[in-house]
């Protein structure tokens, strides 16, 4: 594919990046009503000092000693005040795993930054290593080939389970991607399964595109990047979290494909493969 050709996909990608750039620049020019410092706390020194933390600890001690019901201090839900596993509906972002709701909802930019860091590192690795010549590996024996052919589908299945249940159980996109990449590594070393880099590139680029697209749609619907705009269900079910299930699945696919491309490049380079 020549560089000078006009491509519809390139044009839309450029337009999308331009719109994102304008969104990023927009807080410079307009006064939004997003985060504001409360006027009672205008003395910023008071917020971070030792006495303030002492005060808040005293406050928590008072709350604990008064034997209140804690449901009025946790403002989580609109309808039900206490969270019951398997029953309560319409939570803020119905995840049963607290770490996932922090990683993908409250700190969504952090995950996006991790994705970008991983992408840039794999990019540099492929650029540097695709010019070198590579050594040959040993041929696997019969027992290794059969064993690896038996084990690798189960490893990929475990990876898919981990990123699908990222909002219910520990795990998530990144370890699932690492497990999928380990499975592809096994199939590469053990039974010489020669997967194509171009397919992995297709998966990786589309997953990364849809992550940013869904997050930007949150900017339109709720007013914040990575905001949840899909309905939430019952806590503990598979379709309980609104956007987190989809984004974590895309993150798992993207990380797995990226690490697989890196391993394939480390194994024999991109020379004997179609670009």
């Amino acid at each position: 594919m020549r560089e000078s050709d006009f491509n519809v996909g390139k044009f839309f990608a450029f337009l999308f990046v331009l719109i994102l750039f304008l969104f990023m620049l927009s807080p410079l020019f307009e006064e939004g009503d997003g985060a504001k410092i409360d006027k009672n706390l205008s003395d910023i020194k008071n917020r971070v000092s030792y006495f303030h933390s002492l005060k808040s600890v005293k406050e928590i001690e008072r709350i604990l000693s008064d034997n209140n019901d804690f449901s009025k201090y946790r403002e989580i839900t609109d309808s039900a005040k206490t969270v019951i596993f398997g029953e309560s509906k319409d939570l803020e972002n119905g995840t049963a795993n607290l770490v996932t709701s922090i990683v993908l909802d409250y700190r969504g930019f952090d995950t996006l930054g991790e994705l970008i860091v991983l992408f840039i590192s794999i990019l540099g690795l492929t650029i540097i290593l695709s010019t070198l010549s590579f050594a040959k590996f040993e041929e696997p024996s019969f027992l290794q080939i059969t064993g690896v052919k038996f084990v690798t589908p189960f490893m990929i299945l475990v990876g898919i389970y981990i990123f699908l249940h990222g909002h219910l159980s520990p795990g998530g996109g990144f370890p699932a991607g690492a497990i999928i990449a380990t499975a592809t590594l096994f199939s590469l070393i053990g039974c010489k399964f020669n997967y194509r880099v171009s397919n992995l590139k297709f998966i990786e680029s589309n997953a990364g595109f849809f992550v940013i697209l869904l997050a930007t749609l949150g900017l339109y619907f709720t007013g914040s990047f990575f905001g949840n705009y899909l309905p939430t269900g019952i806590v503990g079910k598979l379709y309980s979290s609104s956007l987190i299930l989809i984004i974590y699945s895309l993150v798992g696919l993207k990380v797995g494909a990226e690490l697989s491309v890196g391993i394939k490049t480390l194994y024999n380079g991109e020379k004997d493969d179609d670009r």
Binding site: N97, T100, P170, G171, G172, F174, P175, A178
Partner: peptide
């Protein structure tokens, strides 16, 4: 969570 990530990566 961190344990799974550490073991896999």
């Amino acid at each position: 969570d961190v344990a799974i990530t550490e073991a896999a990566v």
